[in-house]
Design a protein around this nucleic acid. Structure first.
Lengths: 152, 152
DNA sequence: ACCTATAATTTGTATATACAAATAAATAAT
DNA sequence: ATTATTTATTTGTATATACAAATTATAGGT
């Protein structure tokens, strides 16, 4: 409300607490969403990132790390670490040919697929209920647009 | 654009990649903003969180950790850690009376104040240039509203 | 064919943050 | 007054992620 006030009365943002808020607001939102997601994927005992990565591997067996980097918007090193953990859990296997790596789901992962989808739905319902489907959709669009503009 | 597409054609979000995107979009945005902020406060050799906390202490000498928790939207333990580091750097001191703690800026911190403000401005200009002042303002309002609705 | 530049992946290490438990003090309930 | 509850803060530990450097491999230019 502090911010809304500033916005409405045209106060110069750089001299107020506004610019703090872009920083903390985006982080706070991300953490709250993270928490919601964490809960949603508890039934399969995976963190949201691991779950999404696994779903992508199930969707596209043999997918390569760089594709995961692009899709999940994480760095290569983070993707490697996520895959490692899923490998430990016997949910994926990696085959390396040359400089390329392929990631495949194991049978164990395939058995989980339905359950993963359910968690997905659970997550969606949690935030859509809180925000309304339209507003959530708008927000995602707007966040993506802006992240794109911030480049790289 | 994938998301925009889904949105525009009314596809059921819970069955698409959309719900992934709420998760990764909010995180990706936060990370990009973090990066921008990190650069902006390099001149004073502080992370954005440390810088903001310090600015609050300068603004309100004697401020207590719980007030910082509320304002910065971080957990008590994180606030303690941030203060510790600023103490190591001789930028703040803590006095404890009973269960309450007061945090005060040191003279060294007061000398930095102008420079801190400059970094703030720098940060604001970086993202406002990329996004336009109106759009950034709207986004902050919208993110806060939604974080509030997600509660606690 | 040979060297160089670029691309994919992994490894070592650092940062930001959280949760849960511990501590300690203040307040309320009897 | 004494005990129980709540509140503020700190500590131990874990997670998610990044950056920079190392490794390896492919592709291009000569």
């Amino acid at each position: 409300m502090q911010i809304l006030f500033l916005y409405l009365c045209g106060m110069k943002a750089s001299e107020s607490r506004f610019c703090k808020c872009m920083y903390f607001s985006s982080n706070a939102l991300a953490r709250k969403i993270e928490k919601l997601a964490l809960e949603s994927w508890k039934p399969v005992n995976l963190s949201p990132s691991h779950a999404y990565l696994l779903m992508m591997v199930l969707d596209e067996p043999g997918i390569q790390p760089m594709a995961l980097v692009d899709e999940l918007q994480l760095t290569p090193s983070t993707i490697t670490r996520l895959i490692e953990k899923l490998e430990e859990k016997k949910l994926v296997v990696r085959t390396t040919e040359g400089k390329l790596t392929n990631v495949y789901p194991t049978p164990k992962a395939k058995e989980m697929q339905a359950k993963l989808k359910e968690c997905s739905k659970e997550f969606y319902e949690k935030y859509a209920t809180a925000l309304g489907p339209d507003e959530s959709a708008r927000l995602v669009v707007s966040m993506n647009k802006i992240a794109d503009k911030l480049g790289k």
